[in-house]
């Protein structure tokens, strides 16, 4: 068995090499390899459209006439095919798969490499911390000595602020403006001054201490503080990281590497998806790394 990554053949492309390094990392942490051998029925994706980053799906008809799809995402399959009841046990998986999505710029499907992991079931804060740690280590492994950051926000905290606004259209606008760090549009909104000031503060938050002012006495705050406490300067609080509230709750995060124009890692806690898939009392957290995005900026690792 190849244990030493330095002995790998020279013809491996940088992203393939990076994928192997990540697989080794996750496997060392006790995650087991998940392989998608089959296709899913289209229905699985159609029912959870908002969970998917791109909502276009390649469909085809199977031999028996069922409408099937090429996977636009791996997480949904992992959750669907759990062997054990996630309400009782903790299950950890990693994967290295091709997924099929459209990009916003060219209106066409592309095959994208995605390496990721999921931690599902009866878990505690230590698991969340482990996943964050692995996200950070993943960035370190693929950053080739360049600077990297992991931006983390907490949807529970954000929702507690949003819940003070009654109008759902306004809430959608607020989410958009927060994700754009757009303080001037927040200032123009027809909402009470108190909430306005808190939102503007939230946009500009850079450390946990500033959060104490905004979320005094909030249930999630101590949890969030506790979670981020031991990480160094590469983990930053940034509430512009937002994922769909119908699926995600708790922390959500994005990873960036200097010189790569988009986020290269994306993840979060998705208990709400578990609930939608029939697992009332279980938790789940995971992330995916998009190695294609390393692209031309990273010739060698």
């Amino acid at each position: 068995m190849l244990r030493d990554l330095n002995t790998l053949p020279k013809y491996l492309r940088p992203e393939e090499f990076a994928a192997l390094k990540l697989r080794e990392l996750y496997s060392d942490y006790g995650y087991s390899f998940y392989r998608m051998g089959k296709f899913e029925e289209y229905d699985l994706y159609a029912k959870n459209k908002e969970f998917l980053i791109s909502q276009d799906i390649i469909t085809f008809t199977d031999i028996d006439g069922k409408l099937m799809a090429l996977k636009p995402d791996v997480t949904l399959s992992i959750v669907k095919h759990l062997r054990e009841n996630p309400e009782n046990v903790l299950q950890k998986f990693f994967y290295d798969e091709k997924i099929y999505r459209t990009s916003r710029n060219i209106r066409a499907f592309r095959e994208i490499s995605q390496v990721g992991l999921e931690c599902i079931g009866a878990f505690d804060e230590a698991c969340v911390r482990e996943v964050l740690e692995l996200a950070l280590k993943s960035l370190e492994k693929i950053s080739d000595g360049k600077e990297y950051v992991l931006d983390v926000s907490h949807l529970g905290l954000l929702s507690s602020l949003l819940s003070r606004i009654d109008n759902t259209n306004l809430r959608a606008d607020i989410l958009k403006f927060v994700s754009e760090k757009n303080s001037h549009e927040i200032a123009n909104l027809q909402i009470p001054e108190l909430e306005k000031n808190l939102l503007v503060k939230l946009i500009n938050v850079s450390g946990i201490s500033e959060l104490r002012e905004i979320f005094r006495g909030n249930y999630y705050l101590a949890q969030f503080e506790n979670l981020l406490g031991n990480f160094g300067g590469n983990v930053r609080v940034d509430f512009s990281v937002i994922s769909d509230l119908n699926y995600y709750n708790g922390i959500v995060f994005r990873g960036f590497i200097d010189g790569v124009p988009e986020s290269i890692l994306s993840g979060g806690q998705y208990d709400n998806l578990m609930r939608r898939m029939g697992h009332e009392n279980s938790h789940a957290i995971g992330f995916a790394v998009y190695l294609d995005k390393l692209g031309g900026n990273h010739e060698s690792y």
């Binding site: 950051v149 512009s240 960036f256 010189g259 790569v260 988009e262 986020s263």
Partner: peptide, 16 residues
């Protein structure tokens, strides 16, 4: 909508 000139930033560049 009300329009004016805005300063925009690349999300990754703004981190570094």
């Amino acid at each position: 909508a009300n329009l004016s000139a805005r300063l925009i930033a690349n999300k990754s560049a703004y981190k570094f």
